[in-house]
Amino acid sequence: MKVRLLALAAATVALAGAATTASAQLHDPATPLAVASKIALRGEANSIAVREMRIVRKNDILVVQADMANMGRTDRTVFYRFKWLDNVGNQVGDGESWKQMTVLGLGQQTVKSVAPTSAAVDLRLEMNVEAR
């Protein structure tokens, strides 16, 4: 009986830890799943949703535009950068520096970036949204 209780307690602790980790990676429900797969969220979304992401190849270089919408009434500060990946998932180039942007309450902003080389075939938009 004690062994079962210990196993149950250990499983409960493990599930609670997994739920905490998973909740930090959850995206805003207004973000489409195809777009959410391109986003690496650091912390909570705090009412910021990436509604649309357009990726095109121009002159053999990837170009991206992403629309960030603030679903809340208060202004939010968003820190973001794009990570460019090659065909096996390795980072291409030195990486971008973090950029800061304010998205007004109930507003929308478009962010843009260009891949550093033609070796980039995929990307991740890393985001950190400041809570106020």
Rank of each mutant, 00 (worst) to 15 (best):
D60G: 06
S37V: 01
A40R: 13
A69K: 10
G72T: 04
R76S: 08
K2P: 00
Q25G: 12
A66W: 05
A49C: 08
A19V: 09
N128T: 07
Q108D: 05
V35K: 09
G95A: 08
A49T: 03
T31K: 09
T21G: 09
N70Y: 05
K38Y: 04
D75E: 12
G72R: 04
A40G: 09
D60L: 10
Q100Y: 00
R73L: 10
A24D: 12
A22E: 14
L85S: 07
A69Y: 05
F79Q: 13
K58I: 11
I39K: 05
T117F: 07
W98D: 11
L106W: 02
E126H: 09
D28N: 15
R73Q: 10
R76T: 02
T77E: 14
L15Q: 05
K58Y: 02
L85T: 04
A131L: 09
L8D: 04
D60E: 13
T110I: 12
N59D: 15
F79A: 13
L104P: 00
L33D: 15
G89N: 06
D86L: 07
W98E: 13
T102L: 12
P116E: 07
A30H: 10
Q65S: 15
A119R: 13
M127K: 04
G93D: 06
K58A: 12
V13R: 03
D67E: 11
R57I: 03
W84Y: 05
N70H: 06
A16I: 09
K99R: 14
L106C: 03
L62M: 13
A119Y: 06
A7N: 01
L33P: 10
A11Y: 00
N46C: 03
V50C: 15
E44C: 02
A119T: 10
V129H: 05
E96W: 01
K112N: 14
M127F: 03
V63I: 06
A19H: 09
P116L: 08
V13E: 01
N46W: 01
A14T: 09
D28F: 02
K83G: 02
K58C: 03
Q65I: 02
L41I: 14
V50E: 05
D122C: 05
S23R: 15
L8N: 02
T21H: 10
A120P: 06
S37Q: 14
A11W: 01
L41E: 08
A120L: 06
M68R: 03
E52P: 00
K38Q: 15
R57N: 11
A19G: 11
E44N: 12
V129W: 04
K112L: 12
Q108C: 07
E96Y: 01
R81P: 03
E126S: 10
V50Q: 05
T21L: 15
S113D: 15
Q91K: 10
R42S: 13
I55W: 02
R54I: 10
V63A: 12
V88E: 11
T74A: 13
A40M: 10
A14G: 07
I61A: 07
R4Q: 06
T20Q: 14
N70P: 06
E44W: 05
S37D: 15
Q65E: 14
Q25K: 14
R4P: 00
V35A: 10
D86R: 07
S23L: 11
A30Q: 14
V121P: 00
